[in-house]
């Protein structure tokens, strides 16, 4: 586990950046998460997560062209790095492994009682 440390929110952000491939910047990531996961995301929380992910080397950022729309402010686009890709895959693998180890009985039992 020690190799790729990812918080739950960080994982979602990382995945979303992947999904939005090439179009991932603050607002689009925020809206996308809000829409798909039906949860509120504050600019502050998102920004902290992005910053941490960049420090861990899972993301890189690049300044986009400025438009008149955002008060002349440029967008900062994020893309996955190879390490970021590995981290997502690792996280997914761990989850699948864990899921597969659940005894069938536990899942069945749930059905019975339900």
């Amino acid at each position: 586990m020690g190799k790729y440390q990812l918080g739950e929110f960080e994982e979602i952000v990382l995945l979303t950046v992947g999904v939005l491939y090439g179009e991932a910047y603050g607002v689009s990531i925020k809206l996308s998460i809000e829409e798909k996961l039906n949860r509120k995301v504050s600019v502050g929380a998102l920004q902290s997560a992005l910053k941490r992910l960049e420090e861990k080397g899972y993301l890189t950022s690049k300044e986009g062209e400025s438009t008149s729309e955002r008060g002349g402010r440029p967008k900062l686009y994020f893309t996955l790095t190879p390490a970021g890709k590995d981290a997502i895959e690792y996280a997914r693998e761990v989850r699948n492994q864990l899921y597969n180890q659940i005894p069938k009985v536990a899942l069945d039992l749930k059905l019975v009682t339900a």
């Binding site: 910047y25 603050g26 607002v27 925020k30 600019v43 920004q47 910053k51 300044e63 400025s66 729309e69 955002r70 008060g71 402010r73 440029p74 967008k75 900062l76």
Partner: peptide, 15 residues
């Protein structure tokens, strides 16, 4: 370092 982008994001959301 990040002020410009964040302000842009905030303004876009505000709009």
């Amino acid at each position: 370092g990040i002020h410009r982008y964040l302000e842009g994001d905030l303004l876009e959301l505000f709009e």
